[in-house]
Design a protein around this nucleic acid. Structure first.
Lengths: 152, 152
DNA sequence: TACTTTTGTATCGCAAACGATATAAATAAC
DNA sequence: GTTATTTATATCGTTTGCGATACAAAAGTA
């Protein structure tokens, strides 16, 4: 059994597991309002900048539009947002929050703190989080840039 | 717009994105052999310890059996492994690698290094990786233990 | 022994992710 | 101005994840 195949030596398995478990921690808080974690991400994007085309939302979340489109359609059917054709570019679908979608920000106000406190542990504290953020951001940037080598 | 709802301040979004992108980095290397990333994880578990019940594989990967069962069935239909009833406990399904499954370890020998080099960047080097591993392990342990509060 | 509970696995349904492909609108080329 | 190419989004198919539930084997209990 080669060392490099042991689960203990895998970065990806750790990221994959940590991501899944942290998303699970969000689940009870979000499902209470009929939301999933990716839907919560869309909400954060729109709370920050409302009335965006699908493409911009996808780019911000680093997802493909074929992932985001059905996600937005489900949220539209829930009355959280509206999808309308853009006026300048008729190809674009502009996504806009409804009152319900905007108001969810108030209803979910305590989610960040609740989840945040669920993660605090020995090596992950408010002081060390910036280190973790920096490493993850570097990894994301490295992988993202090498994924599209045509952009000099 | 509240600070705590900005994507830049989210640990989960970083983990989620880093996990997705790193899994995508595996994709071309694995699909060449007809494998997905979760299937690769199963292989690593079985290379380390062959002939395990479904439950042990699921626990090792921290997944539910209803995720692992169809995954194993697909791998069985690909001839990578076999699923057979246990002799002591007839409820258990013992999963065993075939020659093809064992041989994949040789075919995939260069995958860990290739992916590893794709992640190396400013703040993530062989020297700093243990720090990252430690933080991720702590997060995983914290979330896992608080997910099952009945185990003292 | 008969009844209950637990345990190991599977089935079902839904929501992601994403590769491949399609379609319409906009832009560029001729 | 027509044709070719690019762009924005959508559709389709496959594989995960996971909650809810089903079911049979095993273990515990009366």
């Amino acid at each position: 059994m080669k060392e490099q195949f042991k689960l203990e030596n895998q970065l990806c398995f750790r990221l994959y597991t940590a991501s899944r478990l942290l998303t699970q921690a969000y689940h009870p808080l979000l499902s209470e309002h009929g939301l999933t974690y990716p839907q919560y991400l869309v909400l954060m994007v729109l709370w920050e900048n409302d009335a965006q085309p699908v493409n911009d939302i996808a780019k911000r979340l680093m997802l493909e539009t074929n992932t985001v489109t059905p996600l937005l359609k489900r949220m539209e059917s829930q009355g959280i947002l509206m999808r309308g054709k853009g006026s300048q570019d008729a190809r674009q679908v502009i996504v806009t929050l409804t009152d319900k979608g905007r108001n969810l920000q108030n209803l979910l106000a305590d989610v960040p703190m609740k989840v945040g406190s669920a993660v605090i542990c020995k090596s992950v504290t408010p002081e060390t989080v910036p280190v973790l953020f920096g490493m993850l951001d570097d990894i994301i940037e490295k992988l993202d840039s090498s994924a599209k080598p045509d952009e000099a």
